[in-house]
């Protein structure tokens, strides 16, 4: 199958800051690629290059079969973009916004009106349709922005952190819309900070770090890649956890305090029963006694921290 998005060796620097050095991405038609990466890793920069908003310093990219650098006009006729920063006209009503964009896609007056109404219903904005977008709540503006990027019924959709700021219900609704679009053959590139979102929606996940794609695989395969089970050691408190992590690290173990989780926990990838015995021995000899020991399957969070830890350390 032909790929809807194909990028090779994309490079971009802002002044002296080199943001992308050699990004390769391929998104087959009708699939969803989730682009993950820590803050500042260049996700938005990549999306801006692919949507013709920014010119790459090097490398090539095609979107819908058209070269983003040389055939921008054609690319723009097949894409939709929801940027990280909402881009709707605050002085116009939600309906006026959508009708304006529909007009700029040259839909014709009647068709534009029909399309605006359809999208307002779909994104649950009918009651607010005739209020100014500037008076919308953050989540409503976000939904209007999403609706706006779908006005031209694009074949290829770019969503830069589309669910940031949405409440759980709106997020679930957006996921449903995304699944529908995929079922109808739309290709989607989505960036996100939420690993469960990627896990739920993506056919493939690409992890961007240090200006390169450090992993690009199906969610299940990525999880397999970071090893089997996780060993979670719960200690009496933060200090004990820090000591345990230090003791294990000194012996070459890849133990870390679970970021974002309980600070009294230490997590490491486990390679069989002998490994478990060795870890507990090391702690015993150092006089650190875990209160509880747990085993769990790896999550995408583990994948993410595993793959991006070189930079974080």
């Amino acid at each position: 199958m032909e790929s809807a998005i194909h990028a090779r060796g994309l490079r971009k620097a802002f002044g002296r800051a080199r943001v992308l050095h050699g990004v390769d991405l391929t998104v087959p038609t009708g699939t969803l690629l989730a682009l993950l990466g820590p803050n500042g890793s260049g996700k938005t920069t990549t999306v801006r290059i692919l949507t013709t908003l920014l010119r790459a310093d090097g490398g090539t990219a095609t979107v819908g079969g058209y070269d983003v650098a040389r055939e921008g006009d054609r690319v723009r006729r097949v894409i939709g973009l929801t940027a990280q920063q909402a881009t709707v006209d605050d002085l116009l009503t939600g309906r006026e916004n959508l009708e304006l964009f529909a007009g700029l896609y040259h839909l014709g007056r009647r068709e534009a009106r029909r399309r605006a109404q359809e999208l307002l219903e779909r994104f649950d904005l009918t009651t607010a349709a005739d209020r100014r977008a500037g008076a919308y709540s953050g989540g409503m503006r976000r939904r209007l922005d999403l609706a706006a990027s779908m006005v031209g019924a694009p074949r290829i959709l770019f969503l830069d952190e589309p669910t940031t700021g949405l409440d759980p219900r709106s997020r679930a609704e957006l996921w449903a819309v995304i699944r529908e679009l995929l079922a109808s053959g739309t290709t989607i590139l989505l960036t996100t900070q939420y690993l469960d979102e990627a896990d739920q929606l993506a056919d493939r996940i690409a992890v961007l770090d240090g200006g390169r794609v450090v992993a690009d695989d199906a969610p299940a395969a990525l999880k397999r890649q970071v090893g089997s089970e996780r060993l979670v050691l719960r200690l009496a408190g933060d200090e004990d956890a820090a000591r345990a992590a230090a003791v294990l690290a000194a012996q070459g173990e890849d133990a870390r305090r679970s970021p974002g989780d309980d600070p009294s926990e230490v997590t490491l990838a486990l390679h069989g029963p002998d490994h478990l015995r060795r870890v507990l021995d090391l702690l015993h000899r150092a006089g650190v006694a875990p209160e509880r020991v747990e085993l769990r399957a790896p999550t995408l969070d583990d994948v993410f921290f595993e793959l991006t830890k070189a930079v974080a350390a």
Partner: peptide
């Protein structure tokens, strides 16, 4: 969904005029 897809083809094919776009933005 079907309706949306049909519109997609229509929208992608239609070319606008600079004057028309200018009028909409004015």
């Amino acid at each position: 969904m079907t309706a949306m897809t049909t519109t997609a083809a229509a929208a992608a094919g239609r070319r606008g005029s600079g004057a028309g776009d200018l009028g909409r933005l004015i």
